[in-house]
């Protein structure tokens, strides 16, 4: 008796599973917006970005779901397989997403057109210029990061240092981790995104007295908000307009989350130089 009952329950459950699998998926009503985890990815960091989510859904008039994948690759693949509609990408991740899935650039911060990477080291390390890094332990951020890997790598090679041969290189995965690794002395120096570094100093997560900047790269074009190519034009326009409408000081709360002051339209043509560099370094 007992066994029959168990078997019956099992049959019902398996049946339910089979039916569940067979039904067609409903169309998602909400827009799914992703951000590369340039400063960590958690449910908590999504909660911290709740004002941004609320702002976007109010402006667009649709519910918005904010997703922060754990790494850069996952963000791009999510645009490719349709699990994200829009994403905030770094320069190099944008190039990869454009190449693989033809994503559409929408908007970027005005600072993204003239972005810089910072080379940082400990206050008393004695490292003053790029050539001092020969033989040292060095931290890049995510291997697919523009300001955390591609451009610093390019700058080092320009100074005659081959990161593969002349230094011991580690990839920390993101900008705050690079800053932390330098602060703690795990590495002698590192390179990271200027806006993240400023936010870390302002927020007190990094001790100003322990870390200093010793080199700033020439400007390059970096982060961009992009759309999956199948997203309806109306939705693309709505999202772009929502960002373009952000004004300081009224929207400072949201602009702080985005680490910017105002937004401008983005265009694929800006990325020609970056694309050339990425191909040259075999990162694309």
């Amino acid at each position: 008796m007992e066994r029959t009952l168990t078997r019956g329950t099992a049959l019902v459950l398996f049946g339910a599973g089979a039916v569940a699998a067979a039904l067609p998926a409903r169309a998602a009503a909400s827009l799914r917006v992703g951000m590369i985890p340039d400063a960590g990815a958690t449910q908590v960091s999504i909660d911290e970005k709740a004002p941004l989510r609320d702002y976007l859904s109010a402006k667009i008039g649709r519910p918005v779901e904010l997703v922060i994948p754990t790494n850069y690759n996952a963000t791009v693949e999510a645009l490719g397989n349709g699990s994200l509609d829009f994403a905030y990408l770094g320069g190099l991740t944008y190039l990869k997403a454009r190449q693989a899935y033809g994503v559409m650039p929408l908007v970027q911060r005005i600072s993204d057109r003239q972005f810089h990477s910072l080379f940082i080291t400990q206050t008393g390390s004695g490292i003053e210029k790029l050539t001092d890094l020969r033989g040292k332990r060095f931290a890049f951020g995510d291997v697919a990061s523009t300001s955390g890997h591609l451009m610093p790598d390019y700058a080092l090679r320009g100074a005659g240092i081959d990161p593969d041969k002349d230094m011991t290189v580690r990839y920390t995965g993101n900008h705050p981790a690079t800053a932390k690794a330098v602060e703690s002395g795990t590495v002698d120096a590192g390179a990271l995104d200027e806006s993240v570094f400023k936010a870390l100093l302002d927020g007190g997560q990094i001790d100003k007295t322990k870390v200093r900047v010793f080199f700033t790269t020439p400007p390059f074009v970096d982060y961009v908000w992009a759309a999956r190519k199948d997203v309806p034009a109306a939705d693309q326009t709505a999202l772009a307009n929502a960002f373009l409408a952000l004004k300081s000081p009224a929207d400072d709360k949201i602009l702080t989350i985005l680490r910017g002051t105002s937004f401008v339209r983005a265009d694929d043509a800006e990325y020609a130089t970056l694309r050339k560099i990425a191909l040259q370094l075999k990162l694309l």
Partner: peptide, 21 residues
């Protein structure tokens, strides 16, 4: 498996560690 982006509490942990929290 969450540590490589497959969701769940592992993903949270990686995120918190990456955010230095």
């Amino acid at each position: 498996v969450g540590a490589v982006g497959a969701g769940g509490i592992g993903t949270e942990l990686v995120g918190a560690i990456n955010a230095l929290d």
